[in-house]
Design a protein around this nucleic acid. Structure first.
Length: 587
RNA sequence: GGAUCCUUAGCUCAGUGGAUAGAGCAACCGCCUUCUAAGCGGUCGGUCACAGGUUCGAAUCCUGUAGGGUCCGCCA
């Protein structure tokens, strides 16, 4: 990136020299080209200045070029089309950059990519399953996307607090505890009296009762209020239920290698009353049909009247809007967060917009703090509808992950047979686990987050296309070269020679790693990194096909190509790790 | 009714102001006595939903229309 910054300065100097000091701050409009035949960068400023200067764009481009000193980074520029200026890196410059990249901090390998200059305290709120329910496919995206965003921001040097805002509070517990008192009271006083599967079944029945039985509904609501007021028996029952769920969640987090700190909705209970008090004092919250409501700008109901955000129910209970408001205050005032990122499905977009609006109206969010909802689409079945099992039930996350591991294991076994290879059980299960889980993660992250995607084991486990197995294969391929040639990449010390088109293309792509990571951090779109890695893998395979490495014509070229191989593998490893995916030395 | 996201190749999707709109899959044609062919090269394939507008330049920004997803007061 420093090359582009430098280029910008040089062009601005040329603009000033050619057209006067007024143009010293004009944006040169530098962009990466979309076709190698136009070089590496195109400067588009000539077209935009045409009207202002009253000259044809190509003339402007020529005047600019006449005043431009490019140093030794780029070849002589060319004017093309309506007035594009095309710039191409010199092979020598690319070689130097690659050597710098190769030598940098091999031990904790970040390929010489520096930390950001202004690290921030960032909270990433993700995963957020509900107590007394199993994690299902609906939690997959939040967990994977949130983890990836956290990894990328941590890599950049930000102080990231990962928070699991678990649903451990509210009406659901009123329902569940009320129901359990009737049918399984021992579950409320004894640890592990029933297992989680049963708990889920009880939850469904409790919900059904709640929906149809008014008396039950009332009792359940009273139980919620008891919980929120700290009644001992109710609290004890609640703690038991949470502990049981927590163990189950941890199994999944361990499998997926996810670190996240539990801080559930209940954590904010002591702060809820103050939220209402302060909203009332500010005159924002008013009573409406017995409930406390804040009326919103830009939201109306069917009759065109302003829509409220309800912050306290008519029975005195608080709801998730109250909790989210209390969480905002706590995170900004106590955690001192400068950026807060919420990773939830796009169905909650309205809710967050409303909550943020209320918090802003109350002046709880300083201008310097960035608070963002990062929405994502649904996981759909092959029929385009919400993913379900054949019997129509929600897909348990555990089952989904196990199935992916098992399916990849079967594919891999078949390949071993075809290649007449014999491997240990340990080797096989490790490959299946890493590729199977990697495939699920990669399939999710490689989609544009905002759209829904169709879940397909066949596609995500395929060895062709933009998949985890394809990327893992590239890494393993490079390691195979080092084993075959008995190469220690760490000791490579050589000038890089770039002659073949496939070498140049690979070299240029390797140098864009930092920009790719930066794009994810800025846009919070992990698919940018996936796209980068996929293109890197393709360029590597093209290079590998065209250029002999171990059998290169001379020692210098051999070392140079080995360095390209090594850098590719390190980029793939770092990239996959930022996506939460491990690599395999052999597969 | 409102809010919001979306509509790009047969299928699944990239691409938020630049040149002739890209990739994977599928289909078809080639490439293994040579470092892992889990690979590579090539062919075929598009009125970027539609209509206006802004701009030197629009899949991209604005307005409208049609179609679809999701959400909308006492669940979270």
């Amino acid at each position: 990136m420093s090359a582009v910054t430098d280029l910008k300065t040089r062009i601005q100097r040329a603009l000033a020299a050619a057209f006067g000091e007024d143009f010293a701050q004009t944006d040169p409009m530098i962009a990466a080209t979309n076709d190698p035949k136009y070089g590496d960068y195109q400067v588009n400023v000539a077209m935009s200045l045409s009207k202002k200067l009253g000259k044809p764009p190509r003339q402007i481009a020529q005047d600019l070029m006449d005043n431009l000193d490019l140093g030794d980074t780029f070849e002589a520029p060319e004017i093309a089309g309506p007035g594009f200026i095309n710039l191409r890196y010199t092979a020598q410059y690319l070689g130097q950059r690659l050597q710098t990249m190769s030598k940098a901090d091999r031990n904790h390998d970040r390929l010489g990519i520096p930390n950001v200059t202004n690290p921030k305290k960032v909270i990433v709120d993700f995963s957020s399953p509900n107590i007394a329910k199993e994690m299902h496919v609906g939690h997959l995206r939040s967990t994977i996307i949130g983890d990836c965003i956290a990894r990328v921001l941590e890599f950049q040097g930000h102080d990231v607090l990962r928070l699991n805002h678990v649903g451990d509070w509210g009406t659901q517990f009123g329902m569940l505890i009320t129901y359990l008192k009737e049918v399984a009271p021992e579950a409320l006083t004894t640890a592990n009296a029933i297992d989680l599967g049963d708990l889920v079944a009880f939850y469904k029945k409790a919900k059904a009762r709640f929906d149809e039985d008014e008396a039950f509904q009332l009792t359940a609501r009273e139980e919620v209020v008891r919980l929120q007021n700290g009644n001992e028996d109710t609290l004890k029952a609640w703690r038991l239920l949470c502990e049981q769920s927590r163990k189950e969640f941890q199994v999944i987090y361990d499998l997926l290698d996810i670190q996240v700190n539990e801080r559930g909705e209940s954590f904010y209970n002591p702060y809820l009353a103050d939220v209402i008090k302060d909203l009332k004092t500010l005159g924002l919250s008013v009573e409406d049909q017995g409930a406390q409501c804040v009326f919103l700008d830009g939201f109306t109901n069917r009759e065109g009247q302003p829509l409220p955000l309800m912050v306290q129910k008519s029975d005195g209970g608080f709801n998730y809007a109250t909790t989210d408001l209390a969480a905002i205050r706590y995170r900004l005032n106590e955690d001192k967060a400068q950026r807060v990122i919420y990773v939830t499905d796009s169905g909650q977009a309205n809710h967050f917009e409303q909550v943020f609006q209320v918090a802003r109206k109350a002046k709880w969010i300083p201008e310097t703090v960035e608070i963002t909802h990062v929405p994502f689409g649904l996981v759909q079945g092959e029929d385009g509808k919400k993913l379900k099992t054949r019997s129509g039930d929600t897909v348990r996350l555990r089952d989904l992950l196990d199935e992916s591991i098992e399916k990849f294991g079967a594919i891999h076994d078949a390949r071993l047979v075809a290649e007449e290879r014999s491997e240990t059980e340990e080797f096989k299960s490790n490959v299946a686990r890493i590729a199977g889980l990697g495939a699920v993660k990669y399939a999710d992250l490689s989609q544009n987050r905002t759209s829904s995607y169709i879940f397909s084991y066949d596609k995500m486990l395929a060895d062709k296309g933009n998949t985890a197995p394809y990327m893992l294969y590239v890494y393993a391929r490079v390691q195979s070269i080092s084993r075959r040639g008995e190469i220690d990449f760490a000791t490579l010390e050589t000038p890089v020679q770039l002659q073949e088109p496939s070498e140049l293309a690979l070299a240029k792509h390797l140098l864009q790693m930092e920009a790719a990571i930066g794009a994810v951090a800025d846009e919070l779109l992990p698919n940018r990194l996936c796209q980068y890695l996929f293109e890197l893998s393709q360029k590597f395979n093209t290079f590998y096909d065209a250029c002999p490495v171990l059998k290169a014509e001379d020692e210098g070229l051999r070392s140079s190509r080995l360095m390209l191989c090594d850098l590719t593998a390190r980029c793939v490893k770092l990239g996959l790790n930022l996506l939460g995916i491990e690599v395999l030395e052999r597969m």
